[in-house]
Amino acid sequence: QIFVKTLTGKTITLEVEPSDTIENVKAKIQDKEGIPPDQQRLIFAGKQLEDGRTLSDYNIQKESTLHLVL
């Protein structure tokens, strides 16, 4: 699982696999929060994550925290 922290300070927990794409993660966030993926920007280690890449591409491991910017 990974954590996604929103600007409001809320933390969302997501069940993911390293092979999941960023697009996939955004879809999971939409399921939980109702935020359309095209409004979501995910930041990890100061980098904006691209939809077509996977979590493992960015070396995002379990218990990692991503930041969600709208």
Results as ranks from 00 to 15, higher is better:
47 K>R: 12
17 E>V: 12
56 S>E: 10
32 K>R: 09
54 T>P: 05
56 S>R: 10
64 S>T: 08
67 H>N: 08
57 D>N: 06
6 T>Y: 13
40 Q>R: 02
43 I>V: 11
26 K>W: 03
30 Q>S: 12
19 S>W: 14
48 Q>L: 11
23 E>H: 10
7 L>E: 14
45 A>N: 11
45 A>D: 15
54 T>F: 07
44 F>W: 10
61 Q>V: 14
53 R>S: 07
4 V>I: 13
63 E>M: 11
10 K>W: 10
2 I>Y: 05
35 I>Y: 12
22 I>A: 02
56 S>W: 09
67 H>S: 07
70 L>W: 09
68 L>T: 02
66 L>I: 13
6 T>G: 06
62 K>M: 15
51 D>F: 04
17 E>I: 13
13 T>Y: 07
4 V>G: 01
48 Q>E: 15
66 L>P: 02
68 L>H: 01
59 N>E: 08
38 D>M: 09
30 Q>P: 02
64 S>N: 10
5 K>N: 07
15 E>C: 15
25 V>A: 02
63 E>C: 14
60 I>F: 03
41 R>N: 15
52 G>H: 13
27 A>G: 09
15 E>N: 14
60 I>G: 01
15 E>D: 13
66 L>N: 01
25 V>S: 00
2 I>R: 01
20 D>L: 06
43 I>P: 00
6 T>A: 05
69 V>M: 12
42 L>K: 00
27 A>E: 10
49 L>M: 06
4 V>H: 01
53 R>V: 07
70 L>P: 10
34 G>S: 05
67 H>C: 14
24 N>V: 11
28 K>F: 06
10 K>P: 05
52 G>W: 13
35 I>D: 03
50 E>V: 07
38 D>C: 15
13 T>A: 09
36 P>M: 07
26 K>E: 01
62 K>H: 14
11 T>F: 08
36 P>I: 06
3 F>D: 03
35 I>W: 13
54 T>G: 03
58 Y>R: 01
7 L>N: 15
36 P>W: 06
70 L>V: 15
13 T>F: 08
21 T>G: 03
62 K>W: 09
42 L>P: 01
4 V>R: 00
45 A>C: 12
15 E>F: 15
40 Q>L: 06
17 E>M: 14
26 K>R: 05
3 F>L: 06
9 G>W: 04
32 K>I: 11
67 H>E: 13
46 G>L: 04
28 K>C: 05
11 T>E: 06
61 Q>L: 11
32 K>S: 10
12 I>W: 06
64 S>R: 03
25 V>M: 05
50 E>N: 07
64 S>H: 08
68 L>F: 03
34 G>R: 05
64 S>W: 05
41 R>W: 10
33 E>H: 07
24 N>K: 14
70 L>S: 11
59 N>F: 07
59 N>S: 09
57 D>I: 03
16 V>F: 13
35 I>S: 04
44 F>H: 07
27 A>R: 13
66 L>F: 04
8 T>V: 08
1 Q>A: 09
9 G>R: 02
67 H>R: 09
51 D>P: 07
51 D>M: 05
66 L>S: 01
38 D>I: 09
50 E>H: 08
23 E>F: 13
20 D>C: 08
7 L>C: 15
58 Y>K: 01
60 I>A: 02
11 T>S: 07
21 T>W: 05
28 K>D: 02
47 K>G: 06
31 D>H: 12
41 R>T: 15
24 N>H: 11
30 Q>L: 10
14 L>H: 00
70 L>R: 08
31 D>P: 02
65 T>L: 09
20 D>W: 09
7 L>G: 14
51 D>W: 03
44 F>I: 03
9 G>F: 04
12 I>A: 02
20 D>G: 03
18 P>V: 11
27 A>T: 10
62 K>F: 12
27 A>M: 12
19 S>E: 10
7 L>A: 15
2 I>A: 02
51 D>V: 05
60 I>W: 02
18 P>T: 08
54 T>E: 04
20 D>H: 06
51 D>H: 06
68 L>V: 05
35 I>H: 08
25 V>T: 03
63 E>S: 09
5 K>D: 04
44 F>K: 03
21 T>K: 08
16 V>K: 01
18 P>W: 15
49 L>C: 05
43 I>R: 05
